[in-house]
């Protein structure tokens, strides 16, 4: 497992757990949780600077862009135009062409508008962006996103922040078989076993925010997620035994009295 590195668009990542930076109590807690999680990819949002309260601390004072891959998202965008605008602003504010592209369909489910997603992805790829799309657990859409040039796809496990775990493992498995790029299961993880399961199914990475930040003890959950993702990956690589209906004795009968 020493060389089990995740590579997306020529970039190598150490950690298969990616984390969001929203919903924490403060930046100190954000920083600690990320450190404990071992994640080296962190997502951020792009928003207006608070110009009336300049004493406000900056997230990047706590999350060193030299140490972490900063993955800006287009969170909160419901149209192709907005998503493209935010992606361009993210590139202008940041240091890379990476973007986690979100085009949302509705406020209640926060499910992706996959039509809009494909359209926005096409525009941004043409402009040189490395587009990592937050998408539905739909194998056809995943394939289309890869066909237009996305170097990875990020299908949801369940609605954002719902903590429901993987709602449709069979679709995720079909996506993993259908596309030949890394799959990052994004959103909907509730606890460690959900993350382990995603990795056991063959996901290349898991991205989460609320499951850690919203836990009673975010730092402890960050640690749990680190082990869950690692264990799930090891189990996937090790290859599980087939399920059988009846028992198979583990101890030999030979030599019994």
């Amino acid at each position: 497992m020493h060389n089990d590195r995740l590579v997306i668009a020529g970039r190598e990542f150490k950690s298969r757990l990616w984390v969001g930076t929203g919903k924490y109590k403060d930046f100190a807690e954000t920083k600690k949780a990320i450190e404990v999680s071992g994640a080296d990819v962190v997502t951020v949002a792009v928003r207006r600077v608070n110009i009336t309260d300049r004493s406000k601390e900056n997230l990047l004072d706590f999350i060193d862009p030299k140490k972490y891959t900063i993955l800006p998202n287009t969170a909160g965008c419901y149209t192709v135009e907005d998503a493209v605008r935010y992606a361009r602003l993210a590139r202008a504010a940041g240091v890379s062409d990476l973007v986690k592209l979100e085009v949302l369909g509705d406020e209640k489910t926060l499910f992706p508008d996959t039509g809009g997603l494909i359209e926005a992805a096409k525009i941004l790829i043409k402009e040189g962006f490395i587009v990592l799309p937050y998408t539905n657990d739909d194998p056809i859409v995943a394939k289309k996103l890869v066909d237009i040039g996305c170097p990875a796809v990020m299908p949801l496990a369940a609605p954002i922040g719902s903590g429901l775990g993987i709602r449709n493992p069979y679709n995720l498995k079909i996506i993993m078989e259908t596309v030949k790029v890394p799959i990052v299961v994004d959103a909907g993880v509730g606890t460690a076993s959900d993350a382990a399961l995603a990795m056991e199914y063959g996901a290349d990475a898991v991205l989460m925010n609320t499951a850690i930040a919203g836990a009673q003890d975010p730092i402890a959950m960050a640690e749990a997620m680190k082990y869950a993702v690692h264990a799930g990956r090891l189990a996937y690589k090790a290859g599980r035994i087939p399920r059988k209906l009846y028992a198979t004795a583990s101890s030999p009968i030979e030599g019994m009295l």
Binding site: G22, A45, V46, R47, V49, N58, G94, L104, Y134, I160
Partner: peptide, 22 residues
């Protein structure tokens, strides 16, 4: 003039963030 920078974020809407009216 709009001046923006990175803030904490993960999912599409973290509830407390200030939206930029486009």
């Amino acid at each position: 003039v709009e001046i923006l920078s990175f803030i904490g974020g993960g999912g599409p809407d973290d509830g407390w963030i200030r939206r930029v009216p486009t």
